[in-house]
Simulated scan of single mutants.
Amino acid sequence: MNIKSIPYNHQLKKVDFQDIEFNIVSFEEIPEPYFKDYSHHKSATARNHKSYDTMGFRDILLEQLSSNLKTNVLKLLIITPKSEG
C-alpha cells in the first residue's frame, strides 16, 4: 500500500499505523512560537496587544521539519489517539 496516496476518508481508518514509519521530532527541535510585532501600530491598544504569530510559527516549523527530515514538508497532519476513559 502506498501510504502517500491514501485519501483522508474511510480508507485511512483501515491503515494499520504500526506499518507506517513515523519520524520522531523532539520538543527541543521545535521552535517556540512568538508574538506578532504591533509596535508600529498607531493605536495604543493595538500596540499593547499580544497574539502569537501562528502563520510565522507554522512557516518556521515546516522549515525545521524539512531540514530535519531532509525532504520538502508542505503540510502537517497530526493524528492523535482517542482519549481513553
Rank of each mutant, 00 (worst) to 15 (best):
P7A: 13
L61P: 05
P7H: 08
E63T: 09
E28Q: 13
S39C: 03
N68W: 03
N72V: 13
L62G: 03
L76Y: 04
N2D: 14
A46C: 01
T45I: 14
P31I: 07
L76Q: 04
V25P: 06
I60T: 10
G85V: 11
K70H: 07
H10D: 11
E84T: 10
S66K: 05
L77H: 00
S83D: 00
H49D: 00
H49P: 00
T54S: 07
Y8F: 15
D19Q: 05
I60D: 14
L74H: 09
T71Q: 10
G56D: 01
V15F: 13
F57M: 04
F22Q: 08
P31E: 05
P33N: 03
T54F: 10
L74V: 01
S39Q: 01
V73N: 08
S5G: 11
F57G: 03
S39T: 12
S66V: 09
T45K: 08
Y8T: 11
N72F: 00
Q18K: 12
K14G: 01
F35I: 06
K4L: 10
Y38R: 02
L77A: 12
N23G: 11
N48S: 13
R47M: 10
I60H: 09
T54K: 09
I78K: 07
H41I: 06
S43R: 07
D16V: 04
K42N: 09
N48H: 13
D37T: 06
P31Y: 01
A44K: 11
N23V: 12
I3C: 02
N72T: 15
I3P: 11
S83I: 10
F35Y: 11
L76A: 08
F57H: 14
K82R: 14
E29L: 10
L77T: 15
D16N: 14
D59Y: 00
V25D: 08
N9G: 11
D16A: 07
E29S: 15
D37V: 01
A44T: 09
I30L: 15
N68K: 14
V15Y: 09
N68V: 06
P81S: 12
K82T: 15
E84L: 10
F27Q: 15
R58L: 11
L69R: 02
P33I: 01
K13P: 00
K4Q: 14
E84D: 12
Q11T: 05
K82V: 06
E63Q: 11
Y34G: 03
E63L: 10
S26T: 15
S26F: 03
K42A: 07
N48M: 11
K75L: 06
E21C: 06
A44L: 12
I60R: 14
P31F: 01
R47F: 10
I78W: 05
E32Y: 15
K70I: 08
S26N: 13
D16K: 11
K42F: 08
E63G: 02
N72C: 07
Y52A: 02
F22W: 14
N48Q: 08
Y38T: 01
D59H: 08
S43H: 04
N68G: 10
S5K: 15
V15P: 09
T54Q: 06
L12W: 13
G56H: 03
H10S: 15
E29Y: 01
E84I: 08
L69S: 00
